[in-house]
Amino acid sequence: MSIIYILIPLAIIIVSLAIGIFFWAVKSNQFEDLERHGYSILFDDDIKSPSSSTNKPSDPSPEATQYTDEKNTKEKNKQSLTSNDQS
């Protein structure tokens, strides 16, 4: 029975914290546009038109450069393995 003296204040603190977070979210417009994020998965921004696609970008990003470097390293390792197998 003595545990109830701990659980009731703990429950009141948790509920008041949840209510406070809810009112903060409403006040900071967190629930303003709920449909936009749901529709965003339907539109693919990564697809480029065929006329603008090229083999190499004019200003490569660090991620693209890293991917290209990793790809070149894998190809070199593959070539060295095949040359070792032939000899």
Rank of each mutant, 00 (worst) to 15 (best):
F31Y: 10
A18C: 05
E63L: 02
F31I: 03
L42N: 15
Y5K: 11
T68P: 10
T54Q: 10
M1D: 03
F31A: 12
K78G: 13
E32M: 08
S61P: 00
L10N: 02
P9C: 06
F22H: 12
K74T: 09
S53L: 12
G38M: 15
H37D: 10
S40T: 13
K74I: 10
I6E: 11
F43I: 02
Y5A: 13
I4F: 03
K56F: 07
F23S: 09
S61F: 00
K56Q: 03
N55C: 12
D33S: 03
S61I: 03
T82I: 04
E75C: 01
T65H: 04
N77P: 00
A64D: 12
E63S: 01
D59C: 04
M1S: 14
T65P: 01
I6S: 15
K48G: 00
S52E: 14
S51Y: 06
D46T: 10
I4G: 08
P60T: 04
G38P: 00
K76Q: 12
E32T: 15
K71Y: 13
D44V: 05
D44W: 07
I19S: 00
S52V: 12
E35Q: 03
D59T: 15
V26W: 15
N77W: 00
R36Y: 15
E75M: 06
S53R: 10
M1N: 04
Q66V: 04
I21E: 14
S49T: 15
N55T: 07
L7T: 08
Q79P: 00
N55P: 03
P9Q: 06
L34S: 03
V26D: 13
M1Q: 11
I41H: 05
F23A: 09
E75R: 06
S58P: 12
Y67H: 09
S28W: 13
E35N: 07
S53C: 06
N29E: 04
K56M: 05
L42G: 12
S40P: 02
L17A: 06
D44L: 06
R36W: 15
N84Y: 11
F23I: 07
K78H: 13
F22I: 08
I4C: 13
A64Q: 15
L10K: 01
S52P: 01
P9R: 03
K27Y: 11
Y39D: 09
Y67W: 14
I8K: 00
S51W: 11
E70A: 13
I6A: 13
I8W: 05
I4P: 02
G38I: 15
V15D: 12
P62E: 04
I4E: 02
T73N: 09
L34W: 01
S58L: 06
E70I: 07
N84D: 01
S49N: 14
F43A: 14
L17V: 01
P57S: 14
L10W: 05
L34N: 04
Q79Y: 10
P60D: 06
S2F: 14
E32N: 02
T68R: 10
S58V: 11
L81H: 01
I13P: 06
A18W: 08
D44C: 04
A18N: 09
I19K: 07
T82W: 09
H37C: 03
G20R: 07
I4D: 07
E35H: 09
W24Y: 13
D44Q: 07
T54V: 10
D33F: 14
S16P: 00
S40A: 08
Y39N: 11
P57G: 14
Q79C: 07
S49E: 14
